[in-house]
Simulated scan of single mutants.
Amino acid sequence: MEELTPKEARFVSEYLVDLNATKAAERAGYKKHTARQAGSRLLSDVNIQAAIEAAKLERSERTQIDADWVLTRLANEADADMADLYDDNGDLLPVEEWPLIWRQGLVAGVEIEALYEGEGEDRIQVGHVKKLKLVDRTRRLELIGKHIRVNAFQEVVEHKGLNALADRLERAQKRLDGEGN
Score class of each variant (00 low, 15 high):
92 L>V: 00
74 L>E: 06
143 L>Y: 14
129 V>T: 13
40 S>E: 13
137 R>A: 07
3 E>I: 14
132 L>T: 00
140 R>K: 15
104 Q>L: 10
132 L>F: 02
122 D>A: 15
20 N>Y: 11
119 E>I: 08
84 D>T: 05
49 Q>V: 06
175 R>F: 07
150 V>R: 13
23 K>V: 11
44 S>F: 07
108 A>E: 06
168 R>Y: 08
107 V>N: 01
156 V>S: 05
118 G>K: 05
53 E>N: 12
155 E>A: 04
53 E>S: 11
136 D>G: 05
133 K>I: 07
71 L>N: 06
105 G>W: 02
91 D>M: 14
119 E>P: 04
120 G>Y: 02
55 A>V: 04
86 Y>E: 01
26 E>R: 15
93 L>G: 02
57 L>K: 14
80 A>R: 02
89 N>G: 09
55 A>I: 06
77 E>H: 06
40 S>C: 09
19 L>M: 12
61 E>S: 07
88 D>N: 12
166 A>Q: 10
71 L>M: 09
47 N>M: 05
53 E>W: 07
100 L>C: 05
136 D>N: 15
145 G>N: 03
140 R>M: 14
16 L>A: 12
170 E>R: 13
56 K>W: 00
120 G>V: 01
178 G>I: 01
66 D>A: 00
155 E>N: 09
109 G>Q: 08
99 P>E: 00
130 K>I: 10
162 L>T: 06
171 R>D: 08
27 R>I: 05
107 V>C: 01
146 K>C: 03
153 F>G: 04
100 L>H: 09
68 D>H: 09
18 D>L: 13
98 W>G: 03
113 E>A: 05
31 K>Y: 14
111 E>F: 00
84 D>M: 03
7 K>R: 15
172 A>R: 13
7 K>V: 06
142 E>Q: 13
141 L>T: 08
120 G>D: 05
26 E>Y: 12
176 L>P: 02
150 V>L: 15
2 E>H: 12
176 L>S: 03
170 E>S: 12
107 V>S: 00
152 A>E: 14
77 E>C: 09
179 E>N: 05
163 N>G: 13
76 N>H: 10
132 L>Y: 00
59 R>V: 05
18 D>V: 06
162 L>S: 01
139 R>M: 11
173 Q>D: 12
48 I>L: 12
53 E>Q: 08
45 D>G: 09
42 L>K: 06
80 A>L: 04
67 A>I: 08
113 E>V: 15
165 L>Y: 07
27 R>Q: 06
2 E>F: 11
123 R>P: 02
129 V>Q: 06
88 D>S: 14
24 A>R: 11
56 K>Q: 03
